[in-house]
Simulated assay, not measured.
Amino acid sequence: MISRIDVSDAAKSLIKTLSDQHGDLMFYQAGGCCEGTQPQCFEKGGFYPRMNDAMIGLVEGYEFWVDRDLFEYWQYSHFTLDVLEGFGPGGFSLETPLGKTFKIHYRLFNEEELKELAPVIRY
């Protein structure tokens, strides 16, 4: 199966720091509005996905959810979770006090990858 999401080394390091501080985590990629499309990191259970949101995979063992409408737009894309220095458009995500922000890099799957994609889990 082809994974729908990967994690950069910088993001892995930050996830380790956050999980040491906060325990189990979860990620949610919104479809716009207040936080734009910045991936958000919460304590597990600190955010509830909506009906039909898509869990596209695990990052370092933690669920990564995507807004149902955003997933329909990006369903043929591979996500790579990365981290940047600085503040994103909001302040709700756990990395914000550390002066960092999560970011997603996208690329389209090729035809062979599309045949082998891991299934998503719907809420």
Rank of each mutant, 00 (worst) to 15 (best):
G61W: 06
S8I: 07
S19M: 02
S19E: 11
G23S: 10
Q38T: 14
V120M: 08
S93L: 05
E111W: 00
G45P: 07
A54M: 00
W74Q: 12
W65Q: 02
F71P: 00
G88M: 05
G86L: 05
L117D: 03
A11W: 04
M51S: 13
H105R: 13
E95Y: 02
K44E: 13
E112L: 11
E112V: 13
A10Q: 09
Q29P: 01
F109L: 04
M55Q: 10
S8W: 03
M26A: 10
L18E: 00
P97N: 09
D20R: 11
P89F: 07
E95W: 01
L117Y: 01
K115P: 02
Y76I: 02
C41A: 15
A30G: 15
L94Y: 00
S13L: 13
A118W: 02
C34E: 08
F109Q: 03
E111D: 13
A118K: 14
K12P: 00
I15M: 11
S93I: 03
S3P: 00
K12F: 02
Q40I: 15
A54N: 00
G99P: 06
I104K: 03
W65K: 01
Q38E: 14
Q40F: 11
I121F: 06
S19Q: 11
L25A: 12
C33M: 12
L14E: 12
Q29G: 08
E113Q: 07
D24E: 14
R107M: 06
W74S: 13
F27I: 10
T37W: 11
N110Q: 04
F71I: 03
T101N: 10
K16S: 08
N52R: 12
D24C: 06
D67L: 09
I5D: 02
Y73C: 05
T101D: 05
L25M: 12
F79M: 14
D24Y: 05
I15Q: 09
M1N: 06
I2H: 08
V83D: 08
A118F: 01
T17N: 14
D24N: 11
L108W: 02
A54K: 04
L18R: 00
Q29Y: 02
A30S: 15
L14R: 12
K103H: 15
Y28S: 05
G99R: 05
E85G: 00
Y28A: 07
E72D: 06
T101L: 12
L84Y: 12
E35F: 06
D24M: 08
T80G: 04
A118R: 15
F42W: 12
F47S: 14
D20C: 09
V83P: 04
A10D: 07
G32F: 01
C41I: 14
F47P: 09
E60H: 03
G86K: 12
V120C: 10
E35S: 15
N110V: 05
Y123I: 11
G31W: 01
K12W: 02
I2A: 07
G57R: 04
E111R: 12
V66M: 02
E43S: 10
P49Y: 01
I121P: 00
Y76G: 11
E111I: 10
N52A: 08
V59C: 12
E95I: 03
T101C: 15
G99E: 05
D53F: 02
Q40L: 15
K103E: 13
K16R: 06
Y123T: 14
K44Y: 09
Y48R: 15
T37H: 04
I121T: 12
F79T: 11
D24H: 08
M55F: 01
